[in-house]
Computed example of a mutant assay.
Amino acid sequence: MDIVMWVLIVIAVLAVLLAAWRFLTLRSRGTTVILRRLPAGGTHGWRHGTIRYNGDDLEYFKLRSISPMANLVFNRKTAEFHGTRGLTAAESSFMAPGLGVFDISFGGTRYEIALDPHGAMALTAWVESAPHIRQERIDHHALREKITRRRGRN
Rank of each mutant, 00 (worst) to 15 (best):
D2W: 06
D2T: 11
I3C: 10
M5L: 12
M5Y: 06
W6T: 09
V7D: 13
V7R: 14
L8H: 06
L8S: 09
I9R: 11
V10Q: 03
I11D: 06
I11Q: 08
A12E: 08
V13H: 00
L14I: 13
L14K: 05
L14H: 05
V16S: 05
L18V: 01
A19Y: 14
A19H: 10
A20D: 02
A20G: 09
W21T: 14
W21R: 15
R22V: 04
R22T: 05
L24V: 15
L26V: 11
R27D: 01
S28K: 12
R29Q: 13
T31N: 05
T31Q: 07
T32P: 00
V33R: 00
V33N: 02
V33A: 11
L35V: 15
L35A: 11
R37P: 00
R37K: 13
L38F: 03
L38N: 13
P39V: 03
P39Y: 03
P39H: 04
A40L: 04
A40C: 05
G41H: 04
G41L: 07
G41I: 07
G42I: 08
G42P: 08
T43Y: 04
T43D: 13
T43V: 15
T43W: 02
T43E: 14
H44G: 07
H44Y: 09
G45V: 09
W46D: 11
R47F: 04
R47E: 15
R47L: 13
H48V: 06
G49V: 01
G49C: 03
I51E: 02
R52N: 09
D56P: 07
D56Y: 07
L58P: 04
Y60H: 12
Y60C: 01
Y60E: 01
Y60P: 01
K62L: 14
L63W: 05
L63E: 06
S65R: 00
I66K: 05
I66C: 05
I66E: 07
P68S: 10
A70N: 06
A70V: 07
A70Q: 07
N71R: 08
N71Q: 12
N71P: 01
V73H: 02
F74Y: 11
N75P: 00
R76S: 06
R76W: 06
R76L: 09
R76E: 07
R76H: 05
R76C: 06
K77G: 05
K77C: 03
K77N: 11
T78C: 04
E80K: 13
E80C: 05
E80P: 00
F81H: 10
F81A: 12
F81R: 12
F81D: 08
G83L: 03
T84W: 12
R85W: 06
R85Q: 10
G86A: 11
L87T: 12
T88N: 10
T88W: 07
A89P: 01
A89L: 12
A89M: 09
A90V: 08
A90L: 12
E91K: 08
S92M: 11
S92P: 00
S92F: 00
S92V: 00
S93R: 15
S93E: 15
S93T: 15
S93V: 13
F94Q: 09
F94D: 08
F94L: 03
F94M: 04
F94S: 09
M95L: 14
A96D: 14
A96S: 15
P97H: 11
G98K: 08
L99H: 05
L99D: 02
G100M: 12
G100H: 07
V101E: 06
V101A: 07
F102N: 10
D103M: 08
I104K: 02
S105M: 04
F106L: 03
G108S: 04
